[in-house]
Design a protein around this nucleic acid. Structure first.
Length: 573
DNA sequence: GATTTCACGTA
DNA sequence: CGTACGTGAAATCC
């Protein structure tokens, strides 16, 4: 047959099934291969270099992890689970759900796997597959299709991989229906899913000595024993409690106790959150000591020696699991503190010897995204400026800070609106963009789902907490309105970001570049020192190209602040 | 033991 | 100036 442009991959135990095909055509049966893992990876490497097929899998995490771990740099992927999340919203994406949604089968008809107990007599629907069938008579994917038990059967793994190809075909049809950009967005989400595996494999370079010093500043020296640890903790607590004679027994980790402690010192607050206490910092030395203690305690507990030992490997890389999208608007998520490392620890994120970081973050991404998704020509014109709030301020006849607050208030909130008059002028100056936001808000209020620019379904049918009375209804509805309005912007921004990251990955790999951190609007790329300037230039070019492809227009300008640094903490620009 | 609440870091 | 996420400690539920 002619060169394959897709190849299904499925794994079970130590075996791998590869099914090369021409997209849209049934694969020839004799092209399927079921091989021991090592041989399969060798074949994948050969196919990748000869044909660069799109690797189709039920999920990259399940099917591609061994290939990524082995260092294969796959170029094109289709992750059925990610495409499914785009199509139907939320995060659930078992192969059975993915198959059913792609084929338009109702969820209510999903067959249950026999569990072997007496209830099977009443629980099973009767829609049970034959022993070697990958689908049921009603057309669903068999309930145990993804279990090692069934996949161990003769021919089953190849059939499961082949089913992924059929599922992709059905899925692309659905995606085309829901959004003109659905397919390109699913491609980009799939690339992000593969990138997540590489992020987990490669980790974030850490200067262990620097990290240890920074932790010591907050948490004290590394404890030698449990008793030592208790003593260090007691001393840390004492720095607060010495300001509260007679209350030395207070448990500082118990907010209720802390609130009582503060009351005894004459500071009466509804809760002990930082922004509530901050105004009292100068009122009583106890408050200042408590707030400093909280900052140090955060590092000591969440980012202390325990964290360093558990998540930073022998190769000085911080590793955590990554996910290509959350269950809401679709931003990437990461575990083990990769997404919420406190700023004081950032000097410890350092390029390895002979390497540098190319750090780039998107400037004013959300208002620029609003210009794209609302197709507001006037607002798009403002994005030609490096600082879009300047032309907006001119248009509104207000100062820049006022214009910025008005734009942010329009996109996110306008509850405690200091914006007032500026907001009304914004409505007049950019009726198209503001109308877009109003419609998203109205959909949220009514509980109607919305779709992002790329086609991701944002569901608003989340079950209400029990016992919600009518007086809470308005509050909950308006929260949904704000959620929907935020999601169409935040979600679209996430789509552009992933398209950009995928392009950077593809266009800088030959220079030995590794993306080591994705932070919503910021990329950190680890590169050999000599390649840094070239990678920085390609990161900028990648934004121009991916933004044009994603937005479908040249009318909206996106900007990145890109620099070559050696520690993450180094100043921007 | 699992889930919820509080608190706080990031964007 | 709102939304989202992940984490840990204590309280609470079962």
């Amino acid at each position: 047959m002619s060169a394959p442009d897709v190849c299904a991959v499925a794994l079970s135990g130590n075996r791998i099934a590869l099914v090369p095909a021409r997209s849209g055509h049934a694969p020839a049966a004799d092209d399927s291969r079921v091989l021991p893992l090592e041989e399969g990876l060798a074949l994948m490497a050969r196919l990748e270099s000869e044909d660069a097929p799109r690797w189709v899998c039920w999920s990259a995490a399940a099917a591609l992890w061994p290939a990524v771990r082995a260092g294969l740099a796959l170029r094109r992927v289709w992750d059925l689970a990610e495409a499914h999340r785009l199509l139907v919203g939320g995060w659930e994406a078992t192969p059975q759900l993915v198959w059913a949604a792609a084929h338009g089968l109702p969820r209510s008809g999903l067959p249950q796997a026999p569990s072997g107990d007496l209830f099977d007599l009443v629980a099973t629907t009767g829609d049970q597959p034959g022993p070697d069938d990958v689908t049921t008579p009603a057309g669903y994917l068999r309930p145990d299709a993804d279990t090692d038990e069934w996949l161990g059967g003769d021919g089953h793994l190849a059939a499961y991989a082949q089913a992924a190809l059929g599922c992709q075909l059905a899925q692309t049809g659905r995606l085309q229906q829901v959004s003109p950009r659905g397919i390109s967005c699913a491609t980009s989400e799939s690339a992000a899913s593969l990138l997540c595996l590489e992020l987990e494999r490669d980790g974030l370079p850490i200067d262990r000595a620097a990290a240890t010093d920074l932790i010591a500043e907050a948490a004290g020296p590394r404890p030698e024993s449990d008793a030592d640890e208790r003593e260090i903790r007691r001393v840390r607590d004492q720095r607060v409690l010495r300001h509260a004679p007679g209350h030395e027994d207070t448990d500082l980790r118990n907010p209720a106790h802390v609130r009582e402690l503060l009351a005894s010192a004459g500071v009466h607050v509804p809760n002990t959150r930082k922004w509530v206490l901050e105004p009292y910092r100068a009122t009583h030395p106890l408050v200042a000591a408590l707030l400093d203690w909280r900052r140090d305690e955060r590092i000591a507990t969440t980012y202390g020696y325990h964290w360093l030992d558990r998540h930073v490997g022998a190769d000085d890389r911080l590793r955590g699991a990554w996910s290509a999208c959350d269950g809401a608007a679709g931003r990437m998520t990461a575990q083990n503190g990769l997404h919420n490392l406190p700023a004081p620890l950032r000097p410890a994120v350092a390029a390895a010897p002979g390497h540098a970081f190319v750090r780039a973050d998107l400037g004013q991404i959300e208002p620029r995204v609003l210009a794209v998704v609302s197709a507001d020509a006037e607002f798009a014109a403002a994005t030609r400026a490096d600082d879009l709030y300047l032309p907006v301020a001119g248009q509104l006849g207000v100062e820049r800070p006022t214009a910025k607050i008005a734009v942010l208030a329009a996109m996110y909130g306008q509850r405690s609106g200091a914006a007032g008059e500026a907001l009304r002028r914004l409505e007049r100056a950019y009726p198209v963009a503001m109308g877009f936001l109003d419609r998203a808000y109205a959909a949220g209020l009514a509980g109607r789902p919305v779709r992002t620019f790329g086609g991701r379904l944002i569901r608003l049918d989340a079950a209400l907490p029990p016992g919600v009375d009518l007086s809470d209804r308005g509050r909950i509805d308006s929260a949904r309105g704000r959620f929907a309005r935020n999601a169409v912007i935040q979600g679209a921004a996430a789509e552009l970001f992933k398209a950009w990251a995928a392009t950077v990955r593809a266009t800088t790999a030959d220079l030995g570049a590794q993306i080591v951190l994705c932070l919503h609007d910021e990329l950190l790329v680890h590169v050999p020192e000599g390649a840094a300037e070239e990678v920085a230039a390609r990161v900028e070019q990648a934004l121009v190209d991916s933004a044009r492809r994603w937005s479908g227009t040249d009318a909206v300008r996106f900007v990145a602040d890109t620099s070559v640094i050696h520690r993450w903490s180094e100043a921007k620009g």
